[in-house]
Design a binder for these strands. Structure first.
Lengths: 254, 254
DNA sequence: CCATCTTTGTGCACGCGTTCACAAAGACAT
DNA sequence: ATGTCTTTGTGAACGCGTGCACAAAGATGG
């Protein structure tokens, strides 16, 4: 998972569990695909398979929304699409600003999945005067001097930060001060925001490092399984008292 | 969090908890910053603040790696940088292929944070013959016909998929068949892979939808607090039998 | 060498999330 | 109307992750 919410009281106040909310978009995507194929109903088993989750989990997730299924039959696809859309707030339009129109910002602006579901790029903002006025994805880039004005006039409440890490916090502060209450952060920085503001982060570097960890573990286990205890004996000088943990021996210089 | 691991036995076989692994890159980033400022030692409290986590959590996380701190003093920054790097497998070089050189693929190829930490873009692959030979981020794009050969020759074990969703599974299958065992998927699709292959996904659309949910909830609570039960009574025609749930009233046309 | 002070490492309890397993509910055929 | 069959909705148990709170460990000063 390339993201992780930043603090927050955790428990949804007598509402839908956070883990469930995170899966609703997944269900919605699968249901939309079924809808386009004009499939009228779907069972929890089928839908769960399409979304890549356990069917019991899916049923429990839906149970938080209400009893929208019919026993013996399944769920009405169209109805469920609507209910989930409504629950996620996708029946309304969400204007979004993207701050930092570099490679990534431009890629996001061009991203089709953006507009497809209730989200609309209201403005592109960059600090570079050279960028101002340039068209990206059919939208003129505006200079960050007018950030507050733009947000106020467009009624934007969701901001996407794709700036270099050095200025991310500063941009974040200005967004929040201007009224933005949800931020999607692509900059590799820990943002601090006041209560009431949601931050989600997408960090490519972290994702790769997590993969590398598992990759190394897999390689280690494989080598261990093949070479047997031979290499282990050879590297037995190190002893960190943690017992025979199947990890790579520590070859710390000092 | 913009990501989510795709199935997997869950419990790390007598190793480091998954939640801890996901935080190690965060600690590493904070520690690297301290290292560059030549800070010799850091307390769990300070480091936790920099990484945006609870100090008790940080100490527990580190305890899984071993006893690398000194009571009364804190942690040696350089030593910890090395230990975490080693644990994450960043002391070795990880060649990575990016498949699908559209806007996003190009942005990733240009992303500096890529090379900074053990990861190296070994190849850029695209299915469009027009793209073949073009330079992106100083690397020549290669046609996907040679995917298997490229992966084999470069010893790549990590693949990044930035293709359109329609071909993502197909690309994934070829990557896996060619020997890739870790995949970072940016395409909005559920990938199915054999056991032993790790998939992490980054899904912009899902992140935005989660933000929209919270945004709607915030707006709803605010309106509720201000308008009281007035608006609720007006929209009371809908009744989903779930009782007086404190959510936004559904104003469904039909 | 002893006292004090700081900071780590962790035992413990709690809460969220997942999964199992099954009763309840409805469709459908006879 | 009754029985059978399918599928939902959920009670209950379990496991992971989090955070508190404190004892152990070491530094530091006298």
């Amino acid at each position: 998972m390339a993201t992780g919410r930043t603090h927050r009281p955790a428990t949804r106040s007598r509402g839908i569990p956070e883990a469930t909310v995170a899966r609703l978009p997944l269900y919605l995507r699968a249901l939309t695909a079924l809808s386009e194929r004009s499939v009228p109903t779907v069972s929890s088993e089928e839908l769960a398979a399409a979304a890549g989750v356990n069917s019991a989990k899916l049923r429990k997730d839906f149970s938080y929304l209400g009893s929208y299924g019919t026993r013996g039959v399944g769920y009405d696809v169209e109805y469920l699409v609507y209910q989930i859309s409504r629950e996620l707030g996708l029946t309304q339009d969400w204007p979004v600003v993207i701050v930092g129109i570099g490679n990534l910002g431009a890629a996001l602006a061009n991203y089709g999945g953006f507009a497809s579901r209730g989200f609309r790029v209201a403005a592109l903002i960059d600090a570079d005067p050279e960028m101002a006025g340039k068209q990206v994805a059919g939208i003129a880039v505006q200079h960050s001097d007018g950030l507050e004005k733009i947000i106020d006039e467009s009624g934007v409440s969701i901001g996407v930060i794709t700036t270099p890490p050095g200025v991310a916090q500063q941009v974040c502060d200005r967004l929040v001060a201007a009224g933005v209450t949800s931020i999607l952060n692509f900059a590799p920085t820990v943002l601090s925001v006041p209560d009431g503001v949601d931050v989600r982060k997408v960090d490519l570097s972290i994702e790769l490092q997590i993969l590398a960890f598992h990759e190394q573990r897999k390689a280690g286990e494989e080598a261990e399984a093949q070479a047997g205890a031979a290499a282990v004996a050879q590297a037995a000088q190190e002893d960190n008292g943690k017992g025979p943990d199947g990890d790579v021996p520590a070859v710390m210089p000092a």
